[in-house]
């Protein structure tokens, strides 16, 4: 599997990271080096092996479906780069 500039552009877009056009070929080369390393996994016979979901077999604890926290609007907004009238503010989302 080899990654070209077009794939690098698509991955950057999916990851929502702006990458300058002239930086894409170097990025593609780095991906190829890392993926080349990962390709070793193809040597392993994984037939019939379950993918790991948890290192410790455990059933997640349940709790009553009730509100345990809340009423902290000021604390929640405290670190926002732009908060107005009790909301997070962002650039216009809909036309």
């Amino acid at each position: 599997m080899s990654i070209d500039t077009e794939t690098a552009r698509r991955v950057a877009k999916l990851a929502r990271i702006a990458v300058a056009e002239d930086a894409l070929p170097a990025l593609a080369a780095e991906f190829n080096a890392i993926l080349g390393f990962i390709e070793q996994l193809n040597e392993v016979d994984v037939d019939g092996v379950e993918p790991m979901t948890s290192v410790t077999p455990q059933r997640l604890k349940r709790r009553a479906d009730v509100v345990t926290d809340g009423n902290q609007q000021a604390a929640v907004l405290k670190n926002a780069p732009d908060a107005r009238e009790g909301f997070f503010a962002v650039p216009k989302v809909v036309e």
């Binding site: 996994l41 392993v44 994984v46 092996v49 993918p51």
Partner: peptide
């Protein structure tokens, strides 16, 4: 595949 190798 990586998660299967992790099991192994």
């Amino acid at each position: 595949r990586a998660r299967k190798v992790r099991t192994l």
